[in-house]
Nucleic acid binder design. Structure first.
Lengths: 194, 194, 194, 194
DNA sequence: AATGAATGAGAGTTCATTCAT
DNA sequence: CATGAATGAACTCTCATTCAT
């Protein structure tokens, strides 16, 4: 049922019919229900599978040593490049998580939301570590910082992957590392940073 | 058909039935089709109406004079506060634009996408003006900067309005101006800015 | 949806498809769901409607005066004749209540069972009245008597209506009043009665 | 496939799935179809097996000598006690025969009906013998008498076993012999009998 | 003998849309 | 302008049966 992810990504959850899914898999409708109890469960399974893969990517970016501002930018850019490359290789998953997962039924939406909560948690670990190492100013409120950070990353990622029209086949003029560097510079120095 | 916006925002496009819409409006099913040719057109009308209102808010923020870095932060914070307040007063519209508009049929999605393109255009004007006034370093690529900026704003806005679970009734612990200031500081100075 | 009763009676609940029902009614499948929320509710409605009609027949038989044994037999025979004639005129209803209502889903079965409980209650009133008038020996246990009585009546009714093979179109060689009289004599005097 | 009888009795024929049957038997779906050509045949086999056991119980009651009225009552009560006890020990079979076998497909119903025809035939032998012995008044119509008798017995049996709600686990407050005696007295003397 | 994955016809139900009044 | 009954195509899901192994 691998093709299902592409179908969900392209047509959305509701517009993807079980008949489309089984056609793409080359099996009969009945066979689908031998493997999955429902369409909903299929979507949730795909999302949860993707959640674990995504989590791993971010956790690899865990910061180990202190360094200069440029070190920070490069370190962040490296993590973002990994993330962008993973996302590019898993466009259908990302389309479901970033875009199409929304107009679905509550249990599927919940699975999507939990994925972003997990994503944010993984980042919170990274930022807390950076503060601990004295690389970032301690803030009275870590959460709001991470909120903003994650909003920045997912927003940029979404635009880079799918463009302004949310086109699954969109190709950004920027490479993943160009985009990652620009984003990391913005992240660390804001609009003013050269 | 004002209640329809709330229904779309709460239940999503596909889960909102025409029967729900007419019940909330107190008219008959037949009457709906006297005013609207289809469910799709209703959604698109609502989105386009909101698009104009949203555009006006951003255009009011058009920057007029140069100033210090703190002036820039305050100026940006003021615009963001306006935006956040408008969004808070139009939660159902924003839910449709930021979240629920996604998993729908192509023509509705197109209307949503066009709204964000208009939003980005309006911001691009603001940033270009700031560069013109010498407040921001000219960049080889204005688009990428604005892309990142808009990704930041819409991402922060979405989290502030609806929280991690995309709950239409979510109430952030931060006021609109707190959130706007924190975002503006991040925007101008990045994570390093005090 | 009057034809539905006949369909249920002839084919049984599960073998009667909504498509059969709407064909017999000359409407579209969608129209069915305008009038009934489900197939189950249709069956329950038909049963409950029949329950009330059946109850009325029995309650008309309420005994008013005392009399001889032959009076009792005639009085009982009159009630049974009414019952048998009603049943004959409502064969499809009776088939559903006596036979086909069994192999259905719990809520439908419950509706059938409640009908027979109501039937028994109505008879209990009649027997209690006869004891009160001194026509029947008071019994330590009215319930068991009425149980046996109702078992006798429904059993005889079922055989007379549908024969040994439960054929909805069965025609007994006995008229309703012949059958009623024989049953009433058995009821009052048992096998020994002449 | 012994558990199948219980499943049919509890859930009815249509609601009992082959997957339920094989689960209860601890074999695979494929194995079922090695032993039985169809679900229908399984049900019919179970019914026909039960039919023979039931027939034996009644034939044991074959009356041998003449006697007083009280002898007749006791003799009949003894047979009924045997019947009730057999039924109690074979509740699932009786549930299928008396209740759940009804709303099924024609071939299964036919098997059930044939069982009751056999049951009636066996009783007819008993009654004819009693008339022959001068214990019962000869009747112009033996059939109608036996009809009524069998209706009485099966109706009483059904209520005693399963109660008004057709509950397979129902427990009557009366013992089998109490119920048998009361029924036999009614059979011989009717409501008037002391 | 036995498995369990695979099948496909068909079930009940939904719902945007239409239309006679 | 307004109604609400009527439509029918399409959907998800079920399950007795089959079949390669």
């Amino acid at each position: 049922m691998k093709g299902a992810l592409e179908l969900f990504a392209r047509k959305g959850y509701h517009s993807t019919k079980i008949s489309d899914v089984v056609k793409s898999a080359g099996v009969s409708q009945g066979t689908f229900y031998w493997y999955f109890p429902s369409k909903e469960k299929l979507a949730i399974d795909l999302i949860e599978e993707g959640r674990e893969k995504l989590r791993k990517v971010i956790e690899q970016g865990y910061r180990k040593h202190a360094g200069t501002v440029d070190d920070m930018i490069h370190s962040s850019a490296r993590l973002l490049t990994d993330l962008f490359e993973f996302a590019d290789e898993n466009r259908y998953l990302m389309a479901l998580l970033l875009i199409k997962g929304q107009g679905t039924d509550p249990p599927v939406q919940e699975a999507v939301s939990q994925t972003w909560i997990a994503f944010e948690e993984a980042f919170k670990g990274n930022v807390a570590r950076a503060i601990e190492l004295g690389m970032l100013p301690g803030s009275k409120d870590l959460n709001i910082r991470v909120n903003i950070l994650v909003a920045l990353f997912t927003g940029v990622l979404s635009k880079w992957l799918f463009g302004p029209m949310h086109d699954v086949d969109f190709q950004s003029p920027y490479t993943s590392s160009e985009m990652a560097e620009e984003t990391a510079r913005f992240e660390i120095r804001g609009l003013l940073g050269s």
